[in-house]
Simulated assay, not measured.
Amino acid sequence: MLIIPGATAYLLTDRFGRMLVLAPTISALCAIIGLYFTYYLDTASGGMVVLVQGTALAMAYLFSPRHGLIVTRLASQRRKLAPA
């Protein structure tokens, strides 16, 4: 619950000031969503919050604008297909 929101914010922005705002926001949203799922699925709260944070990190890893896996693959394919 300490590292994942910061890593997620790092993937989404390169500015430190924005990262300081984004990381606690991500953490709070994941905690609320995780507790919501805990209530309705009758599961452990800590594990569900971390699972939601891990999902947020995975989504940021795939779709972030600069460091995202899908974005970088599409950009490299465009460079290969571009006429020289």
Score class of each variant (00 low, 15 high):
residue 59 M to N: 07
residue 20 L to V: 13
residue 47 G to E: 04
residue 51 L to G: 11
residue 71 V to S: 03
residue 42 D to I: 01
residue 50 V to P: 02
residue 34 G to L: 08
residue 70 I to Q: 09
residue 2 L to Q: 04
residue 1 M to G: 14
residue 68 G to L: 01
residue 5 P to N: 04
residue 21 V to C: 06
residue 29 L to H: 12
residue 74 L to D: 11
residue 54 G to A: 11
residue 70 I to C: 06
residue 17 G to S: 04
residue 37 F to K: 14
residue 41 L to C: 03
residue 31 A to N: 12
residue 2 L to D: 09
residue 37 F to I: 02
residue 61 Y to Q: 05
residue 14 D to C: 00
residue 77 Q to S: 10
residue 82 A to T: 15
residue 77 Q to W: 05
residue 70 I to E: 06
residue 52 V to D: 11
residue 75 A to E: 15
residue 40 Y to P: 07
residue 60 A to I: 03
residue 56 A to G: 08
residue 6 G to Y: 13
residue 57 L to V: 01
residue 22 L to T: 04
residue 19 M to N: 08
residue 53 Q to P: 08
residue 53 Q to H: 05
residue 3 I to L: 14
residue 77 Q to H: 10
residue 7 A to R: 09
residue 57 L to C: 12
residue 30 C to H: 08
residue 47 G to I: 03
residue 73 R to C: 08
residue 34 G to F: 00
residue 49 V to C: 05
residue 25 T to E: 08
residue 38 T to D: 07
residue 17 G to N: 04
residue 74 L to H: 03
residue 35 L to Y: 13
residue 70 I to V: 15
residue 64 S to K: 02
residue 23 A to E: 12
residue 50 V to Y: 09
residue 79 R to A: 15
residue 63 F to Q: 09
residue 54 G to S: 10
residue 48 M to A: 02
residue 65 P to T: 01
residue 53 Q to F: 09
residue 52 V to S: 07
residue 18 R to D: 10
residue 10 Y to I: 14
residue 58 A to R: 13
residue 46 G to A: 06
residue 36 Y to N: 12
residue 79 R to T: 11
residue 23 A to Q: 06
residue 7 A to E: 05
residue 48 M to I: 08
residue 25 T to P: 07
residue 6 G to T: 00
residue 65 P to Q: 05
residue 56 A to H: 09
residue 17 G to P: 09
residue 53 Q to V: 03
residue 7 A to K: 08
residue 58 A to M: 15
residue 9 A to Y: 03
residue 36 Y to D: 00
residue 29 L to V: 15
residue 8 T to R: 02
residue 32 I to Y: 14
residue 83 P to S: 06
residue 36 Y to E: 02
residue 42 D to N: 10
residue 43 T to V: 12
residue 46 G to M: 15
residue 53 Q to A: 00
residue 30 C to W: 04
residue 27 S to R: 03
residue 7 A to I: 01
residue 45 S to Y: 14
residue 28 A to I: 12
residue 79 R to C: 10
residue 50 V to H: 05
residue 60 A to L: 01
residue 31 A to R: 10
residue 39 Y to E: 10
residue 51 L to P: 03
residue 54 G to I: 07
residue 78 R to L: 14
residue 15 R to H: 13
residue 61 Y to I: 04
residue 81 L to G: 10
residue 57 L to R: 00
residue 38 T to Y: 04
residue 40 Y to Q: 05
residue 78 R to M: 13
residue 56 A to P: 02
residue 45 S to H: 06
residue 21 V to D: 06
residue 14 D to G: 13
residue 44 A to S: 02
residue 10 Y to M: 15
residue 25 T to K: 04
residue 34 G to V: 03
residue 29 L to C: 11
residue 62 L to H: 07
residue 84 A to C: 06
residue 62 L to S: 00
residue 47 G to N: 01
residue 75 A to P: 11
residue 82 A to S: 13
residue 3 I to R: 11
residue 81 L to C: 02
residue 73 R to A: 15
residue 71 V to E: 03
residue 19 M to A: 15
residue 4 I to S: 06
residue 42 D to P: 00
residue 32 I to G: 09
residue 14 D to W: 09
residue 42 D to H: 06
residue 9 A to Q: 06
residue 52 V to I: 15
residue 21 V to E: 12
residue 3 I to S: 13
residue 19 M to D: 00
residue 26 I to A: 07
residue 81 L to M: 11
residue 57 L to Q: 12
residue 77 Q to R: 12
residue 48 M to Y: 03
residue 58 A to H: 05
residue 76 S to I: 13
residue 19 M to Y: 06
residue 78 R to I: 14
residue 38 T to F: 09
residue 37 F to A: 08
residue 53 Q to I: 02
